[in-house]
Design a binder for these strands. Structure first.
Length: 889
DNA sequence: GCATCATGCAA
DNA sequence: TATTGCATGATGC
């Protein structure tokens, strides 16, 4: 043994916790609500420390029991804030991690972690062993000697300061022997060590440079003049008590010696399982990679390993492919592996096929040119199981090929069981539902710019085949769960059919008018240039207007405008702040206009240009398994956030046009979320208003303000409350929104809940349901889990409550339009209509309709939307047509 | 090259 | 200190 590492467990844990627990932060936690942020950061820190160790390591902890220091000084560590519950809960987890990682840990009643570390460090040092100590507590600096280096963690945990006798001298001009005396003289508010009042670091260093020790200082106490001398003489006892308190006991009676600290060899899989339990995916991946690298060293192979317990057959020619299709007419799982997430332009890397017993990797270029295989895909009699059916369907559409009869999709099933899987990959989803061992994508293909097929082909052949086998193996379990949760219909009658609708929409795409696009681009460029000049002129210098930092400096330092809110990195320059400043300086209106135009230019003009395909269309991708509420989302480009609220922005919609001889038809649900609320909460007066076809915001205003004639301001305020209620609003935010005092806002809310008392009841009931069950559900039994609702952190619990109230409303509205889409698509297909659904924007559908079907569709589309779901209030729609999207008002 | 922040667009 | 999203440019590692 030549080296020993000692870690102050409590101190590192504190740092780990507070590195991510700034006020207002959402702490990392598992889906069951177990906090993991400190564990995660602790493991990261330990990983760094372990890189520097040589096999001997120990982590020391404090105990909750009082120590000798408390006996000597009752006030020791008094006044310290209690450890937050979220951190306390994680201590056992950190200890469990250390066990699993084979790292020795120790705590001892009556002693602090400092004492354990000090004793072991000095023992080792006396035997000429090099010691590294890790902590964030400066007290430990007194341990520094020729063999002992102390590393202090800094705030962000990213850097360490290390102290040797030399560096201590450089920093304080004191020897390491004087560190105890330094601390004793200065005191330490965090441990409630008194020190000598009035003596801080500067004075303490000066005194020690002259007198070396506290003892010697008091020998010469009478030489010191002035107030300082008085203080020193008066507080002799405090100084000695402080010295006693800060002195680490380097002779603690430990039940083992420094020699018995060797790291134990461990089963990596245990540790991986532990991280999986805590849903610490990054750590799982890192451990898996480390493990692989070790194996790679052991086996001295030129590549990563393949899994010997998994077998599959390689199908690389037509004969074999014909054979297996001939032999397998039973249901099988099929997986298409793509080179990138955007399947509109992805390459096909491979196909996996499995019936649970036999699993195959099929060469994609063979498959796509093999008629037997293509017939198999489009055979309506043979069931197939997939993971992300829509991707396969769209890819095949681009290649003019078909696939039919998907009776199970693992991605959609997993999403219905747990809507928070949205951003996870195949492997993580698999590990949530089974213990099947399957590599992470990045282990096989690498990540970021380096992503690509590995040189060792077997590696990805196996990976792709394995995915197919996993789909098959998990099918029954997932279906069972869905059945238990009454969600089978949601999968089979809504989500899987919807995949086909969305595939058709994405593949159809939306035509772009290039001339209009270029024209708007030029107009915007010119206007932005002019604005830039005006802004620079007003500012007296050029700077990057798009940089909130630089803009903040100009506005609030150079021009001395009154700053409003701050962000955590500096001044806020958002539109609300600018709005308040707009009369203070002529630069402000220019900046506001610049912001608006720059947004339109970069996000909509440039952004959308980059997504146009060679057919002059944009082909978005609707993510069907992402949002926690059941809504869709749209990417590349996002066609669900095209501007509409300002005329300036709305013009962007002129870019999107119907094909020749076609019209765009837009139909949207009116007030669908309020109608859903009226239905599920059984809100009497709200239902009446809907029944009478009233302007809902107006009638709310009439009731809230006790008036017959509603001013436009009153209507606007009532509308804000109607919206706010759906989101679980608080008085403070409503006040911000409608520019009244929080008191008035609270009054509005109270009045509102008096008028619609069932809403209040609904909210209470929903929160109660979520608290008991951990989830809420929609009309069609879609679930959203809300672990935060049982959090002890106020803000998180409140967030949980708002989600509990909002998710069923937003989610049910999503259910309804999804059903409408499936119904409408089916009608169009069965009746051989040429009209096509091309977009969905949460409560509206946009179709591309040939001229000859226009009149029919104006009737049909709203009709189908209205009767998608039967509620106790009617669903109403409005409908518009135009040659471009702008004309759909 | 990648992650994070501030900002702003939609329902 | 209102719900759900996505894309952007700037910035820092």
């Amino acid at each position: 043994m030549e080296h020993l590492t000692l870690v102050d467990g409590n101190s590192v844990m504190f740092r780990a916790y507070y590195a991510t627990a700034y006020p207002g932060a959402v702490l990392m936690q598992t889906s069951q609500g177990v906090y993991t942020n400190a564990v995660f950061a602790f493991v990261n820190m330990m990983d760094k420390i372990l890189e520097q160790t040589n096999g001997h390591i120990l982590v020391a902890f404090d105990t909750a029991h009082p120590t000798k220091r408390h006996e000597k000084y009752q006030e020791y560590k008094a006044g310290r804030a209690a450890m937050p519950e979220e951190l306390a809960q994680q201590i056992p987890l950190v200890k469990k991690y250390l066990d699993k990682a084979g790292i020795k840990q120790h705590e001892q009643i009556g002693y602090e972690a400092d004492d354990i570390i000090g004793t072991l460090a000095k023992e080792a040092s006396q035997n000429n062993i090099k010691v590294d100590v890790y902590s964030s507590d400066r007290d430990l600096l007194q341990l520094v000697d020729q063999n002992i280096t102390v590393h202090l963690l800094k705030k962000g945990m990213k850097e360490l300061d290390h102290y040797t006798p030399e560096s201590l001298y450089e920093k304080y001009e004191l020897t390491h022997h004087q560190m105890i005396d330094l601390k004793a003289l200065m005191g330490d508010p965090s441990d409630n060590i008194p020190g000598i009042p009035g003596v801080g670091e500067k004075t303490a260093i000066k005194l020690l440079k002259e007198y070396e020790t506290i003892e010697n200082l008091y020998v010469h106490q009478d030489e010191i003049k002035g107030k300082m001398g008085e203080k020193i003489r008066e507080n002799k006892e405090l100084a000695y008590l402080s010295k006693d308190l800060v002195t680490i006991n380097v002779e603690s009676p430990l039940p083992f010696s420094y020699l018995e600290t060797e790291k134990i060899k461990i089963e990596t899989s245990d540790l991986i399982d532990f991280f999986k339990e805590l849903e610490l995916k990054q750590l799982v991946v890192r451990m898996a990679n480390q493990n692989q690298n070790t194996l790679f060293k052991d086996e001295e192979k030129s590549d990563k390993k393949t899994d010997k317990s998994f077998s599959y057959d390689l199908i690389l020619n037509d004969e074999k492919l014909n054979d297996i299709i001939f032999n397998h007419q039973e249901p099988m799982s099929i997986h298409f592996e793509f080179s990138e997430p955007n399947y509109h332009k992805a390459e096909l890397w491979g196909i996996g096929l499995s019936n649970g017993e036999n699993t195959y990797f099929i060469d994609p270029s063979i498959a796509l040119n093999n008629q037997t295989f293509l017939n198999y895909l489009k055979n309506k009699e043979i069931e197939k199981y997939t993971f992300d059916y829509k991707a396969i369907k769209v890819f095949l559409m681009w290649h003019k090929k078909a696939i039919h009869t998907i009776s199970f999709d693992m991605l959609l099933a997993a999403y219905l069981i747990k809507s928070s899987i949205g951003k996870e990959d195949f492997t993580t989803i698999t590990s949530l539902f089974s213990s099947i061992d399957i590599s992470y994508e990045e282990q096989i293909y690498g990540k970021g710019a380096k992503k690509g097929l590995p040189e060792n082909k077997e590696l990805y052949y196996e990976h792709i085949a394995k995915k197919a086998s996993v789909i098959y193996k998990l099918k029954d379990d997932l279906l069972e769960t869905l059945k238990d949760q009454n969600q089978l219909e949601l999968l089979q009658k809504v989500e899987i059919p919807l995949s086909e609708v969305l595939a058709s929409m994405e593949f159809s795409g939306l035509l772009v008018d290039n001339k209009e696009l270029l024209n708007q681009k030029e107009v915007l460029e010119k206007r932005i240039n002019v604005l830039e000049e005006s802004i620079y002129k007003e500012a007296g210098e050029t700077f990057n207007i798009s940089s909130p930092k630089q803009l903040g400096d100009i506005l609030f330092e150079k021009l001395n405008l009154s700053q409003g809110k701050k962000t955590k990195t500096g001044y806020s320059t958002n539109v609300e702040v600018l709005e308040k400043l707009k009369d203070e300086h002529p630069i402000i209106p220019y900046i506001m206009e610049y912001r608006q135009l720059a947004k339109l230019y970069s996000t909509y003009i440039i952004g959308i240009s980059q997504s146009i395909f060679s057919d002059n269309k944009v082909h978005t991708i609707f993510n069907q398994a992402l949002t926690t509420t059941g809504r869709l989302s749209s990417i590349e480009p996002n066609l669900q956030n095209i501007p509409i609220r300002t005329e300036e922005g709305r013009k962007i919609r002129k870019i999107f046009v119907a094909e020749k001889n076609h019209y765009l038809l837009g139909a949207d649900y009116s007030q669908i979320e309020l109608r859903v609320l009226a239905d599920i909460a059984n809100v009497k007066h709200l239902k009446e208003s809907f029944l009478n076809n009233e302007d809902i915001h107006k009638s709310t205003a009439q009731k809230v303000f006790h008036v017959t004639d509603v001013t436009s301001e009153q209507r606007r305020q009532a509308k804000a409350v109607n919206f706010g209620i759906i989101y679980g609003i608080g008085a403070w935010s409503l006040a911000e929104d409608i520019h009244v005092s929080p008191k008035e806002a609270q009054m509005f809310i109270d009045r509102y809940l008096e008028i619609y008392p069932e809403i209040k009841q609904y909210m209470q009931d929903t929160v109660e349901f979520a608290t008991e069950n951990g989830y809420v559900k929609t009309l069609m039994n879609r679930r959203r889990y809300i672990p935060e609702i049982n959090s002890k952190v106020f803000m998180q619990k409140e967030f949980g409550k708002r989600n509990a109230m909002n998710a069923p409303i937003q989610g049910s509205a999503a259910d309804i339009i999804k059903v409408a889409m499936v119904d409408l698509f089916k009608y169009l297909e069965e009746n051989d209509k040429k009209s096509k659904i091309i977009l969905q924007v949460h409560d509206e559908l946009i179709l591309e309709v040939p001229e000859e079907e226009l009149e029919e569709m104006k009737e049909l589309v709203p009709a189908i939307m209205k009767k998608a779901v039967k509620l106790t209030v009617s669903l109403e729609t409005s409908c518009d047509v135009g040659k471009n999207w702008y004309e759909l008002k």
